[in-house]
Design a binder for these strands. Sequence first.
DNA 1: GTCTATAGATTGATAGAC
DNA 2: GTCTATCAATCTATAGAC
Lengths: 202, 202
Amino acid sequence: MVAPTRARQARSIETRARLLAAARAVIAEAGIEGAAVDAIAERAGRTSGSLYGQFGSKAGLVVALLDESLDVVAERMLVDIEAATDLDGRLAALWRNFVAPPPTAQDWLRVEHEVWLWATRPGNDEVRARLAERYRARFAALGEALAGWAAEGLIDPAAPVDRLAALVVSTLLGLEMADRLEPGGMDEPTVVAALAALLGRR
Amino acid sequence: MVAPTRARQARSIETRARLLAAARAVIAEAGIEGAAVDAIAERAGRTSGSLYGQFGSKAGLVVALLDESLDVVAERMLVDIEAATDLDGRLAALWRNFVAPPPTAQDWLRVEHEVWLWATRPGNDEVRARLAERYRARFAALGEALAGWAAEGLIDPAAPVDRLAALVVSTLLGLEMADRLEPGGMDEPTVVAALAALLGRR
DNA sequence: GTCTATAGATTGATAGAC
DNA sequence: GTCTATCAATCTATAGAC
C-alpha cells in the first residue's frame, strides 16, 4: 500500500512545521531555557512524544529552528534590499521589516537573538561552530549585495564587504534590543542614518 | 552589645557581595533561566537560604545584579573614554575593555546582554521599565561625554547626542555577540572604524 | 542572617501501545 | 510517527532551628 504511507508522510511533515512554528512563538516569549517542551508541543496541537520523534531532543529542535530561521531572515533581508530603489529606502525597509511590526509578531529576529546568545554559551561549542559557519555564508551573500551598492556608487565602504555585512547584522540586532527595551525609542531616521554612516554613504 | 551586631552586618554585606559575584559568573555561563539558585549559592560559599534572605527571590537577585552591572559598565566606559587622547584611542579602549579579554572573564557585558534579553520578555514589564529608566540615565551621561567630543571638534554627530549614545551602546552589544560567535572575527580596526563612522568622524 | 531539610511543582526524556 | 503514561532529576521557594 502506498496511499497510507503518503498520508503518514504528509502528516509528519505538517507536524514538523507546526512544532517549529510553535517553538518559535514560545521561545520568543519565554526564551530557550524557559520554553518547556510540553508547552511547545501543546501549542502545536501535538504531544511531547512527537517532538522527540521528530527532533530527538530539545536541543535538536532548537538547532532545526536555527537553520530555518537563519534562511528566512537572510532571504527577507535580500528581498528588502533589492526591492527599494535608493539607499535610504533600502535601509529603512531592512529596519522596518524586522523590528517595527509587533502586531503580526515578527518573532524571527528575536528568536535569532535568543539562539545566538544560547549558542555562544560555554558547552554549546558544536552549535556555535554550526551557527558561525552558517553566518559566514549569510554574510558572504549579503556582502555581495553590498558590493553591488558600491558598484552603483551608492556607498563607499571602509571595510571589506563581507565584514561590513557582519557589522550591519550585528548592529541591527543591537538596535532591535534598544527598540524593544523602549518601544519607539529608536526612530527610523536615526537608524537609517546610522546604517548609512556605517556603510560609508557617498 | 554592639560589636556582634557589627560583625553580623559585615558578614551580611560580604554575603551580598559574594552572591552577586557568583550570580554574575553562573549567569554568564548558563544564562538566567539556566542559573540555578543552588548553583549560585554554592559558588558563593553560602546556601540558597541566604540568597532568599538577601534578595527575596531569584528575580530580586537578578534585578540587583542588573543595577550593579549597569553602574560598573557605565563607569568603565566613561573612564576609558576620558583616558585616551585621540578619537581612535578612545574607541579602541571602549571595545578592548569589554570584549577582548576572556581569560580574566569580563563577564559584565555578557551579563548585561542576558539581562537585557530577559527584561524585554513579555511579563517582565516592571523590570523592563526599570532597565529602560536606568539606561536613559546612562545614555544621558555618555551623551554628555560625546557632546564634549563634538565641542573638541573630534566628531560631527548627525543625531542628538543622547540618542547617539544609545546607538553606540547597542552597536557594542551587537558587536560583542559577533565576536563571541567567532572569536577574533571582529578585529579592532574594523570596530573602531565603524564606531567612528557612527559618530561622524571629522 | 544563615543554615538544614523539605515541600511542591516542573522539567527533559523514555517505554510501550497503536 | 504519534500518543499515553510515567520516571527521575531538577527547580524555586518555604519552615523552623540557631
